[in-house]
Amino acid sequence: MAERRRPRLAVWKFASCDGCQLSLLDCEDELLAVADAVEIAYFPEASSVMAKGPYDLSLVEGSITTAHDAERVHKIRRQSKFLVTIGACATAGGIQALRNFADVNEFVAAVYASPQYIKTLATSTPISSHVKVDFELNGCPIDRSQLLEVISAFLAGRKPAIGNHTVCIECKLRGTVCVMVQGTPCLGPVTHAGCGAICPSFNRGCYGCFGPKERPNTASLAAEWLKLGATPRDLHRVFRTFNAAAEPFRQEADAHGD
């Protein structure tokens, strides 16, 4: 077979903890296959070689929290054939979107000794609020086998086999007994699948790390949480985590005060 030009991969970082792009380096057994299948053209976390665009596939981690980043993401979009966002920061604004519900200047004053050097936006927003995104991979952090599935799919020109259904389906596929029906409040019924339903398999309720499922009924789930003994404050807090700015979670948190 004739040698085909290897697709060029770029990995970009915005406001984030690096955990999602590290899951690519964490692929271990598959990492060499990735490096074989694509030309890793730009991935500062992994390599000091930073080749210029254009890129066939850009993986974008992190949220937009500065005016500089809001411009930079447009440049990346222009250089990328496909742009895939990875992780809750990039898809929903991340934990740092808690600033959206408060005064960011108060945070800055509380954290930094010399706040006058900090230039930041009042909000943390997902990449899709700024540029067109071809696919969003949810999770805090993302699941590495899902990441491999997305990369493989884009290389093959097919749709990633990643559903937008609930964590409940993952529990049932693996045979985990429902923790909520046994009395433990769980976000699984409103949360996007992808993690493989880890927490319920350890007899814990889901924390919603993968953000809202398609068409979540958070109000009905919240009503059941109250019946199980949760307080409105519990509900407010549980919807205000890594995906706090995802609209269905934002609304449900708001519905329960603070």
Binding site: H165, C168, C178, P189, R215, N217
Partner: peptide, 13 residues
């Protein structure tokens, strides 16, 4: 529909 979570548990069990 106001109560249903469309979580699919009923069909899974």
């Amino acid at each position: 529909a106001a109560r249903c979570l469309s979580c699919a548990n009923c069909t899974m069990v």
